[in-house]
Simulated scan of single mutants.
Amino acid sequence: MRNPLILQSAFLQEVGELSRFTARFFRELVKPKQEWEEFINQCFWVGYKTLTLVGITAFIMGLVLTIQSRPTLVEFGAEAMLPAMVAVSLVREIAPVITALICAGKIGSGMGAELGSMRVTEQIDAMEVSGTNPFKYLIVTRVLATTIMVPLLSSVANAISLYGGYLGTNLRGDVSWSLYWFQVFNSLSFGDVVPSLIKTIFFGFAIGIVGCYKGYYSQKGTEGVGRSATTAVIVASLLVFIIDLLVVQITDLLDLT
């Protein structure tokens, strides 16, 4: 059994290294000559290549949530509240968090494995020798791409999940298209949509920075690459929940709930 003090020291060291890595990201971000071509390429891989998975998951989410919620509302005679309840639940919490977890699993692990492979095969070292700034080219572009694409994916997930909710509502009931969307938009407010969008920006940044950090400092050959990919998913998913908790507390203090 490992000494708790050693575990605590290792944890604090990891937090310090990640903080220094994040600070370096912001320093490199403001330096001139941005790698726009690589940034657009990463946006394609992060956004477009993840869209199908996010869309299918969001549709099933909306459909299942509606089907599962309907019997309880019918029991209390509140079936008319179903579209509003589903809309608020999906937009405020379920769709953004599930989208972020999907991105943490797919994008975070992918970045960790890709950069880890580049590290152990000395491709990053070769870039440094050739005069290229690997941090600017590899890290800044990827973190920016996840920061921008995750909110967009979450917005798409909101729309698709609400459409799934419409189909779920009409499996046992009969709600017109116009009435359903009127109830959905009537139930949503500023305090529902804006905090949800803002927290997805932090979700994307956390996923990108953790995935890149774990891959960029990968060690011990192929074993280290696998460990980097695994720990990137675990840490990024944990950060998603922590950020979500903080945003919920802040919005509650600001009386936006």
Rank of each mutant, 00 (worst) to 15 (best):
C43G: 02
G226M: 13
E79P: 05
T66M: 07
G110W: 07
G204M: 05
S196R: 04
K199P: 05
R70Q: 14
S218R: 02
L90W: 02
K136M: 12
M81W: 01
A157N: 05
T121Q: 13
A145C: 10
I148F: 14
C43S: 03
F202M: 11
L239W: 05
L253R: 15
F182S: 12
G47T: 03
I67Y: 14
I107S: 07
C103D: 01
A104Y: 11
L144V: 11
V86D: 09
L53C: 01
V247T: 13
V150N: 00
Y137P: 01
T121M: 08
L73H: 05
I98C: 02
G211Y: 12
V235L: 14
S228K: 04
V74Y: 02
Y137W: 13
S109C: 08
S237G: 15
I60D: 02
L12D: 06
Q8I: 13
N133I: 06
I209C: 06
L188R: 10
I102C: 10
M149T: 02
N3F: 13
Q13I: 07
T146R: 01
G211K: 10
L29H: 01
S187C: 01
I107M: 08
T121F: 10
R92K: 14
I98L: 15
V210K: 06
L144A: 11
R172A: 09
L167G: 03
T132C: 03
V194M: 13
I160Y: 13
A236R: 12
L53P: 01
I234Q: 04
L197Q: 06
V15P: 01
F39N: 00
E35V: 00
M118I: 02
F11N: 02
V74R: 09
T146S: 15
Q249H: 07
L253F: 15
T200W: 07
E114S: 15
L162F: 09
G47E: 06
N133F: 12
V240S: 03
E17V: 00
F185V: 05
A23W: 13
L51K: 04
S237N: 11
G191T: 04
R119Y: 04
G221E: 05
L29S: 04
K220Q: 10
L115D: 05
T52D: 04
V15D: 02
G226N: 12
S161T: 06
Y216A: 00
L188G: 03
T251R: 09
A232P: 11
V233N: 04
E93T: 14
F11Y: 14
F25E: 13
I198M: 13
V193Q: 00
S109E: 02
V120E: 06
V193P: 03
G105P: 14
C43A: 07
V120N: 02
R227Y: 12
F25I: 04
A100K: 01
L197C: 07
G77I: 08
D192R: 08
R92V: 06
M81P: 00
P71W: 12
K220N: 08
F182D: 11
L246A: 14
L90H: 03
S117L: 14
